[in-house]
Amino acid sequence: MKELGNMLELKNMTKILGDKLILKNVSLVLNKGETLAVIGPNGAGKSTFFKCTVGLLQPTSGDIIIEGQKIQKNSAEIKRKIGFLGHESFLYNTLTPMENLKFYGKLFKVKNIDEKATRLLKEVGLHYFKEIPIRSFSRGMMQRLAIARVLLAEPDILMLDEPHTGLDQEAVALLNRIIKQKQTNGTSILIISHDFDQVHELADRVTILNKGRITETIQLTSDIDLPKMKDWYAEAVAQK
């Protein structure tokens, strides 16, 4: 399942916003087919870190390298490789699920949009709602559709920003099933999360971002169970 090679590499990324140093020399490697979780306390710069990685924000200094290619500003080719599931759903309230998917499909230059969109809607269980404007959708349904939107372009790298927040058990199970399925397909995944249970279940490797720095990283081998991971995290954060 694991291939060798870097999918995504961040080299000494620094971001200064206003007067504040948000990220300090963040370096990180995401291997092919690997799932890496970034955890950390509130205000540690996780969201900024993500925005820089996706290319929404320009880092003040440092490089982002995807498959050996340096990210240039607004490179369409790189953006197509990344599926970004943000904090917000990025979906249009006035459109139906089908229209939303078709719209993004066109922008991402997806082929066979209709077929793929129908299949994805079935997969996330929104098939019966496909003709209803999503204004009335619950948070869980929105998130499911948002996932379908991200998967539509079949990205090589999935970036998930707190994907489990506000979801019920059923939706969490669905999300995890989809993520696991993507893992077996060899997609690299980067997750930001607060939810230790989910992180432990999904991630291969966990890294801590605290006060704008990557402080520690561990490989989640089978001998590290959930309480052990929590202890490790508490210790790592308390140190600083």
Partner: peptide, 12 residues
């Protein structure tokens, strides 16, 4: 709404 603009910006 729903930060769609960010969605557009992250599109290729």
């Amino acid at each position: 709404e729903n930060d769609c603009l960010t969605g557009l910006r992250s599109a290729p």
